[in-house]
Amino acid sequence: MTFKSSNSSSRIMSRPYIFRHLNKVRWVCLTLVFLMLVLIPLLGIYQHYVSASAYRNLDGSEKLLFDSMHALSSPFTMDPENDLDALKGTTWSGQLFGLKITDPLAIVGQMSAGLEVYWPFVLTGLIPILLTMFFGRFYCGWICPATFLYELNSNFALWLKKIGVYTGDRKFDRRIKYLILLLGIIASTITGTIIFASLYPPAVIGREIYFSIALSGFGGGTLFFMATLLFDIFVSKRGFCRYLCPGGALYSLLGRFRPIRIQRVVETCNDCEKCNAVCEFALNPMRDDFGQECNNCTACIAVCPQDALTFVVSLKDLDNQGPGYCSREYRSNSDERVNEK
């Protein structure tokens, strides 16, 4: 039995220590994004107070908001009234220091609703689109505020399971979300409004956070999101992201041919299945099945005891490499093969 070597068309990148810790970096990233979603409306309110020169009219809790936001922003700006205009919006669409960045789903939705292409707007989505084409569905793993809450929700569901509450883990067809994307586009075209804005969790979350802080009201969006959280607990783990999210569908499509992807080093893999267990999107890393849906979350890299997963530069996944070389199955097979001889 010959030792099957890796596909020569791929280059195995050296596995620096850093890849194991990228998952932590990802969590920091998700937390930061969520924090910004909360902070930006608070800074906005602070900005209103500054604009109106209204400090003397504030009462207790409002003063607290003012003082804390002032402490935060004063090292960076002497003119909060105008300078804080630089930080606005949510992940759905926002601006950072004059640079406008928009979720590509918004662009798709708007083009279908208005049946026109407004190029300045399309250009605001250029950076996310290019990054997605390069890194894949990274938004879903690294940025999306819904991911932040869904992953916490998944951990919560695990705890519930531990104490005996029923949790669901049904599997549906991943392709449903592509259908939803298509239906959403058609519906937007027919009605002339962007349907996605109401049904796409990161847009909903960004809006609900903004409303609850700046406009003192929750709305139907919160109920909708709560419903998806319950769906995730009781019906299907990460069900929305896996099977229903139109944004996820779009990014998967865009990220199909991403150059930066995760690959299994079959030589050191021992088929322990930890990677499959930890994968939030029910992919099959143990058998090289990442596909277009993988969001490079590096959870599998972090959990692998054998460092058998790593990043490579490659335009497509390897085919199923079979059992890991350190696995019992492989060894028993190879023993057989050896014995066969």
Binding site: S53, S216, G219
Partner: peptide, 21 residues
């Protein structure tokens, strides 16, 4: 889908600066 609104005081920089009573 109604929004549950909680009243807030608002501050304006226009027709009349309203001093809180």
């Amino acid at each position: 889908m109604k929004r549950i609104k909680i009243d807030r005081r608002d501050f304006i920089k226009s027709s009349a600066f309203i001093a809180s009573s």
